[in-house]
Write a protein that binds this DNA or RNA. Structure first.
Length: 486
RNA sequence: GGCCCCGUCGUCUAGAGGCCUAGGACGUCGCCCUCUCAAGGCGGUAACGCCGGUUCGAAUCCGGUCGGGGCUACCA
């Protein structure tokens, strides 16, 4: 290795030793499986001082939509993979010229040939719809003018061995590889070739992708070689599966990263969880700082068996991350659900100071940020929500007396949690009830629900006037229903 | 059907021949704490698919078998 000369230093910086890429097709929102692949690529690059390239494979015009491209970019950024973290995004559609050039190279070298066989004709000849292409046109010398597809001529004997960082060596017999299509009748290049040309152009050294591509690897490796390039090192990570152990799919499962973000999953929890699907920091560690993952991740330590995407465990991770947030950050993270169109109250009714007082009590009680709304809505809605189930459960027999007594007791107590609790304890004592029983009607009258934040802290924050009014409202409603339906 | 991959508690995993009467986490069950609900603490439940072989010794190595999955388009 020559190290003399300043130009070499600069050159090495332009061409880092290791280059990886994430190459999604914009046929939908980024899904969790894709996100995991992106994360593996990103962390691998970080770990080894390499570069990450983002390439949008937008060559199927019929299924692509520009907004999906932006959605993918936004989702990646949410995970931490911002534009500063990668080269690109490059659009595959802009490299049609290079793809066409590769077609010519292959054709001229005799590695490819035109074929005008209809699928039915092939099946008719082989008598087997599972067999694949039979090589009928191999030596017919057809030209592109015939409007046929261009096929790659796979070797008849021998085998191709894929060197895979997570699976070891995987061997494929050439006899089992059909002459696959590399260009359509209209001249456009298919995935197998375009993907290879773009990777070679970007000088990709490691192709890290999901296992569903494993069977493409031998074909692509042959293409790399035919084009005169050294094939990359491969790494096929396992797929993510659903409850039925089937590959996660857009139509069967909820997989869009955006959907999880909108529900209130934290990006940090999501990426920590995704990394643990197939990889472990070792020992008994699971929830770990991202820095540690970047420092310790090893592709060779990634499991090769499929992993179930377990939302329950993701939720547990999210709860942990929410609780670990400094209060100010927790308050900040809740904002999207508190102000704006999704909030059930007018923005003018929201009071940041009141929320700040409520927040510490809510932080240990929610698993998704979106759950903050029913926790605190009593403080911002003019009237508490009326949850029928809660009402029916709490507003039973001694409820009217309890409300009565509470109104009297709260009329002149010192308005702070300890005094409020003491007053309520007096009430329950007098009625021969446990505090847990006696607080229920009060809680429902004031917050609308049987479960929620600690009651006396909530009352203290709500204020005497509003509390008393709600107690009276509930009392009146109870009286009325007693009179109308005996 | 063909090619290929995979196989430790229900789930994600630790485990790289003796440290394993298999560890952790999620889930689940019970107890404690407690104004509801959480959080927290304590404890329980539950796995090396099966059969052979190698070895003094196998979850770990080999073979087979069974089971699951991926791919099998002029989609990517």
């Amino acid at each position: 290795m020559g190290t003399q000369g300043d130009e070499n230093v600069g050159r090495e910086q332009l061409e880092p030793p290791l280059r990886v890429r994430f190459a999604p097709s914009p046929t939908g929102m980024l899904h969790v499986g894709g996100a995991r692949s992106a994360l593996f690529n990103w962390v691998f690059a970080k770990r080894h001082g390499g570069a990450l390239v983002l390439r949008i494979e937008d060559t199927d015009a019929s299924r692509n939509r520009p907004e999906w491209t932006q959605g993918i970019i936004d989702s990646l950024a949410w995970l931490g993979i911002t534009s500063a973290e990668y080269e690109g995004p490059y659009l595959q559609s802009e490299y049609a010229g290079q793809h066409a050039q590769a077609q010519r190279t292959l054709l001229e070298a005799g590695d490819a040939y035109y074929c005008d066989c209809a699928r039915e004709a092939v099946v008719a000849r082989t008598g087997d719809s599972h067999r694949g292409y039979d090589g009928f046109c191999r030596d017919r010398g057809l030209s592109s003018a015939a409007g046929g597809a261009l096929r790659f001529r796979t070797p008849d004997v021998g085998r191709t061995v894929i060197n895979d960082l997570v699976r070891g060596e995987v061997s494929f017999e050439h006899a089992a590889l059909e002459d696959f299509v590399i260009a359509r009748g209209d001249g456009s290049t298919t995935f197998l070739l375009a993907n290879v040309v773009d990777d070679a152009t970007a000088r990709i050294t490691h192709v890290i992708r999901a296992e569903e591509h494993l069977s493409n690897a031998p074909k692509q490796q042959l293409l790399w070689q035919a084009l005169g390039h050294t094939p990359p090192t491969w790494a096929h990570v396992s797929i993510l599966v659903d409850h039925a152990r089937k590959k996660l799919s857009k139509r069967r499962n909820k997989v869009a990263l955006e959907a999880y973000r909108d529900e209130g999953f934290l990006a940090e929890a999501m990426r920590n969880y995704l990394m643990l699907l197939g990889w472990s920091p070792g020992g008994d560690r699971e929830i770990v700082p991202w820095k540690l993952i970047e420092a310790e991740f090893e592709l060779s330590a990634v499991t090769s068996s499929p992993a179930f995407f377990d939302v329950d465990k993701l939720r547990a991770f999210n709860g942990e991350y929410i609780r670990a947030l400094p209060l100010a950050e927790f308050i900040d993270a809740c904002q999207p659900w508190l102000v704006g169109k999704s909030a059930p109250w007018q923005t003018t009714e929201f009071d940041a100071e009141v929320f700040a007082a409520l927040a510490p009590h809510a932080q240990t009680r929610i698993v998704l940020l979106s759950e903050i709304v029913p926790m605190v809505d009593f403080a911002f809605l003019p009237h508490p929500v009326r949850d029928e189930q809660s009402w029916n459960k709490a507003m039973k027999e001694p409820a009217e007396q309890i409300l009565d007594a509470a109104i009297a007791a709260f009329a002149d107590v010192e308005w702070e949690p300890v005094a409020l609790k003491a007053a309520m304890e007096q009430v329950s004592l007098r009625l021969g009830l446990k505090l847990g029983k006696a607080q229920a009607p009060v809680r429902v009258a004031v917050t609308g629900r049987t479960v929620g934040l600690p009651l006396f802290e909530s009352l203290a924050i709500l204020g005497r006037e509003r509390t008393l009014r709600r107690l009276a409202d509930a009392h009146r409603a109870l009286q009325q229903s007693r009179l109308t339906t005996p």
